[in-house]
Deep mutational scan, measured.
Amino acid sequence: MPSETPQAEVGPTGCPHRSGPHSAKGSLEKGSPEDKEAKEPLWIRPDAPSRCTWQLGRPASESPHHHTAPAKSPKILPDILKKIGDTPMVRINKIGKKFGLKCELLAKCEFFNAGGSVKDRISLRMIEDAERDGTLKPGDTIIEPTSGNTGIGLALAAAVRGYRCIIVMPEKMSSEKVDVLRALGAEIVRTPTNARFDSPESHVGVAWRLKNEIPNSHILDQYRNASNPLAHYDTTADEILQQCDGKLDMLVASVGTGGTITGIARKLKEKCPGCRIIGVDPEGSILAEPEELNQTEQTTYEVEGIGYDFIPTVLDRTVVDKWFKSNDEEAFTFARMLIAQEGLLCGGSAGSTVAVAVKAAQELQEGQRCVVILPDSVRNYMTKFLSDRWMLQKGFLKEEDLTEKKPWWWHLRVQELGLSAPLTVLPTITCGHTIEILREKGFDQAPVVDEAGVILGMVTLGNMLSSLLAGKVQPSDQVGKVIYKQFKQIRLTDTLGRLSHILEMDHFALVV
């Protein structure tokens, strides 16, 4: 994948999101292997301009796509893939009243899908469409860049269908997702969380590099694949309309690839034109409109599966009536509230959605109805927002919020430890010299600072030695090549209790 991002070429006709291997024109390309080798690009942008032909009021008969309808489940399912879809609609009884809503608040519980998330729908649909058009064949390999849930859905379907599955996901995604993927037989590649989507090191860039190296491999490409919004247009939206008897006044959905909100909203605009569509985008993402909503100094966020630093091709923002931004604290607070007060075992993005819903639905009156999409299960986040310690460490809970008995030293300040200034190293000294210094002084790690004293990161003896043994660096290389740029900081005025929580999850903390 090139470091400079080429513009994806656009073909003359058809839909841009065809499933299957992508040609340089962004659509299915038939021909000899030699032709494909000559024409197939190194990668295709996940934010390529959409060429979708959908228009409100256009006859369904003019759609270029294969459409399906929700099917009634048999008493005995032939395999677990038949437990994807037909998820329950559940009334939220307490939270709406707590925040003064007059309307009825309903939750579409997508964590009841077989793999635990709304992404099971698009995973199965992308595979079925690729099999139907002859792209996927027995023994082929599926590769997908994902925040985890699409990966789980694909790995689940691949396990049943017999495909090899490789999932490329950023490091910030939970260990629970990784464990589930491994249990399903998927191979996992992790990428830096802070890598831009168009960087060769991003999950998108690495996935395309693997595709170019592995024979008979395919990126189904949830960011561009029409099967993504079509899955929701054909099934999720129809289920909502049936469950609500066609009567709903507002739908609120958090947005990642945009397939969920695009597919549902398009069908609702056709069948229930008075329904307002509300999009939820986390602070630090750029999906919301108008652009002024996205202006923030924050560039990272903890909530998973929603928000991006690019506009995915499948996201149709014209069908969203209003956007709201959400933050991590309210997302996790509301997710825990949904679990504790409503018994809905949902993930953090569901918290984002409901946090926005109780604001947006203030305009609705008694007798009206708001539906929220709860995308995934708490299963993926047992060591994250479900953990009091994690919430404390991230600053989303305060010590006084917890009532468990603490040891005698818990409320003492870090400054009472009488710490001395640490050994520091410059980023320009060599790895070999740094190892000598650390061994001589008896230290395992040291902060790396520039000549102005600005902290650049941390270097550890173990990481340097393993990097040297693996051949990633040489003793003569500058130590700046092996620094940890993500590390926890703590102030002298913070409590030892807070430091204790940090050290339970990290090997060190830097006192500043």
Rank of each mutant, 00 (worst) to 15 (best):
L42N: 03
I122F: 02
S117M: 04
G20H: 12
D79P: 03
E176N: 03
V160I: 12
K98I: 12
K75N: 10
G14S: 06
M126W: 03
L248A: 06
P192A: 01
S227M: 09
A24W: 05
A114Y: 04
D179L: 06
A207K: 00
A226C: 08
A226N: 10
K30F: 04
V180F: 02
G57F: 08
I167H: 07
W43C: 15
P138D: 03
N212A: 02
D249G: 12
I219P: 00
I188P: 04
P70G: 11
L220V: 01
I214F: 07
S123W: 05
V206F: 08
C272R: 09
G259C: 00
L156Y: 02
T257G: 02
C272A: 15
P145Q: 04
V204M: 09
S175M: 01
L220I: 01
G151C: 02
K98D: 10
P88N: 03
Q7R: 07
D86E: 13
D238L: 01
A253P: 02
S117W: 03
S50H: 07
I214E: 05
S73F: 14
R196S: 09
E110H: 01
T235P: 03
K25N: 15
L106F: 15
E213I: 08
K108V: 01
C15N: 02
G139K: 02
G134V: 07
L28K: 06
G26Q: 05
S50R: 02
S61R: 13
Y233R: 00
P200K: 08
P74C: 15
R209A: 09
K172N: 06
R132Y: 02
L124N: 10
I143R: 01
P229V: 06
V189W: 08
I142A: 02
S73D: 10
G57K: 09
N228C: 05
S32D: 05
I166T: 11
P145T: 04
E213N: 12
A186V: 09
A157I: 06
N225H: 03
L154C: 02
P273L: 14
I143K: 01
I240M: 06
G20A: 14
T257M: 01
N212E: 13
K267D: 07
Q7M: 04
I95T: 07
S123K: 06
T53M: 04
P200C: 03
P49H: 08
D238T: 11
D35V: 12
G134N: 08
S73A: 15
V118E: 06
I188W: 04
D79S: 11
V168M: 06
K172H: 03
A207N: 00
A237E: 06
P215G: 06
G151I: 00
D249N: 03
C272N: 04
V118T: 08
N194I: 09
L154A: 03
K271C: 11
N93W: 02
F111A: 02
K211E: 12
P2Q: 12
G256F: 00
G185M: 00
I214D: 05
I261R: 01
P41N: 09
I214Q: 04
T68D: 11
L42H: 09
K271A: 11
A265M: 07
P170D: 02
A69E: 11
P59A: 03
S73E: 04
P12L: 01
I167F: 08
K108W: 00
T146Y: 02
G162D: 15
S50T: 08
M89H: 05
A265G: 13
R132A: 10
P138R: 15
G274L: 08
Q55D: 11
D129M: 07
K247D: 01
K97E: 15
I44Q: 15
F99N: 09
S3Y: 09
I166M: 12
E144I: 08
E37M: 03
C275T: 02
A207Q: 00
G246Y: 04
V180C: 06
W208S: 04
T236R: 02
F99S: 06
T262E: 01
Q222E: 05
L81E: 10
T262L: 00
E40D: 13
P59E: 10
G256D: 01
G96Q: 04
P33N: 10
G96T: 05
G256A: 01
S174H: 01
A231Q: 07
K271N: 15
R58I: 09
Q7P: 15
S199M: 02
V178M: 08
E29T: 12
S174N: 04
S217T: 09
C109S: 06
M250A: 02
D234E: 10
P215L: 04
T257D: 00
S174P: 02
T235R: 02
A114H: 11
A158L: 02
S117L: 03
H232S: 05
